[in-house]
């Protein structure tokens, strides 16, 4: 049996740089996050509304009279995804608060940026983590619910008039996931503590919602929705899924523009914070 000395040997084979350089970053961060039982419990919890909606669709297909108290149409998906936005926030807080903050605290950012990686690779790698987590509680259950609805009630959903539902589910899930992920990453890059970043994200999202509610109570105008991320997303859902909620009824371009501006702002913060020139201290 050969005996090898456990020592350092030169590595001769140096291949070309891989094209998808951010993937190891996403994969390892997901592995670390999903190893936490509390986080898995949160993901399970986030899927409970999906189960409830499937039951709702099933009940209505078996007992059509139930449609009067449990309406099953395009609004079902809008309501479901607006509900999932809350889980998306919690998943983002627990999964994303430390993504950059921890790297800054432990110096791990040096490990990334002194490698053959660009700043963009680093940010995309981290963004991939949050997108994957967010899409797992928005897009995945949303599309699955749509497919189940098509299978259980084809007469109701397999029509041209509701053909927009599938793309709307995909589009809204992507917008929610992207906006949440970018805000969380930007906030995470502003602190060296995951706890502070998490609390800041929570404060930003829920704090602005409180302010919006106060302004709404004072002025009774739907434009107040634009100062809160949550309400802007809800306004977009109202426009996309035909929901009827006067508090959020705005032309879709306004919340879309606001959310786009937030996303660009977050990217600028990330660009300023993740600077390679600062890593060699």
């Amino acid at each position: 049996m050969p005996i090898y000395e456990q020592t350092y040997r030169r590595h001769e084979a140096r291949g070309a740089l891989r094209r998808v350089r951010f993937w190891p970053i996403t994969r390892e961060a997901l592995r670390l996050i999903l190893a936490r039982r509390a986080f898995l419990a949160l993901l399970v919890l986030a899927w409970l509304p999906f189960v409830a909606r499937v039951i709702q669709v099933y009940v209505v297909t078996r007992f059509p009279e139930a449609n009067r108290i449990l309406p099953v149409d395009g609004r079902l998906f809008g309501d479901f995804l607006v509900q999932q936005t809350v889980f998306s926030m919690f998943v983002t807080i627990f999964g994303g608060a430390g993504l950059i903050a921890n790297d800054l605290r432990t110096g791990a950012i040096l490990v990334y940026l002194s490698r053959p990686l660009t700043r963009r690779d680093y940010v995309i790698g981290k963004l991939g983590v949050l997108l994957a987590l967010n899409l797992s509680v928005t897009l995945l259950p949303g599309v699955l619910l749509y497919l189940i609805a098509l299978a259980l009630a084809p007469d109701q959903f397999w029509t041209w008039s509701l053909a927009w539902l599938g793309p709307a589910v995909v589009l809204y899930s992507l917008v929610v996931s992207l906006v949440m992920s970018l805000i969380a990453l930007a906030v995470s890059s502003l602190s060296r503590s995951a706890r502070v970043a998490g609390l800041s994200f929570f404060g930003l999202v829920f704090g602005l919602e409180v302010v919006r509610n106060i302004l709404r109570a004072l002025y009774h105008r739907p434009e107040t929705a634009l100062i809160s991320f949550q309400a802007s997303l809800q306004s977009l859902a109202v426009a996309l899924f035909g929901l009827t909620n006067r508090a959020f009824t705005l032309p879709w371009t306004l919340p879309a523009a606001m959310l786009a501006a937030v996303a660009v702002g977050c990217l600028l913060v990330l660009r300023a914070r993740v600077r390679a020139v600062e890593i060699v201290q």
């Binding site: 190891p24 110096g107 490698r115 201290q281």
Partner: peptide, 27 residues
């Protein structure tokens, strides 16, 4: 590059951390 300051990924074993660093370098 071996930096002056501490650098590690919280919760990662040394074996996983070093392998991860290797992957980031293109291995």
């Amino acid at each position: 590059y071996m930096p002056e300051v501490d650098c590690h990924l919280p919760g990662m074993t040394a074996a996983a951390f070093v392998a991860f660093a290797g992957e980031l370098s293109g291995l």
